[in-house]
């Protein structure tokens, strides 16, 4: 149930992760697993996409994979 969620997918939460270290889309999705946020897969993808568009993080390739990151 949504009331059991212990993680919230918010812009501030994403910002904190991306300031700490570069992350791939998969890394981010792991931080906001549906079973922890109570969101559906589709909601998670849509909300995370909107947040990333707003944050407009820097991008770099590490080991062939695109990573996002932010500087303070």
């Amino acid at each position: 149930t949504p009331s059991s969620s212990d993680v919230q997918l918010t812009e501030e939460a994403v910002r904190r992760y991306l300031i700490r270290k570069p992350m791939t889309t998969k890394d981010l999705l792991k931080k906001f697993q549906t079973k922890r946020t109570g969101l559906s897969s589709e909601q998670t993808v849509n909300v995370l996409a909107q947040i990333l568009k707003r944050l407009n993080p820097e991008r770099k390739s590490i080991g062939d994979k695109m990573h996002f990151y932010l500087t303070e």
Partner: peptide
């Protein structure tokens, strides 16, 4: 499952590719 995670990552990347 990891395949569900893969699908979500692919969907997210597709959304962002339009933007980037």
């Amino acid at each position: 499952s990891s395949s569900e995670a893969d699908k979500m990552a692919a969907a997210l990347e597709a959304e962002l590719n339009d933007f980037m």
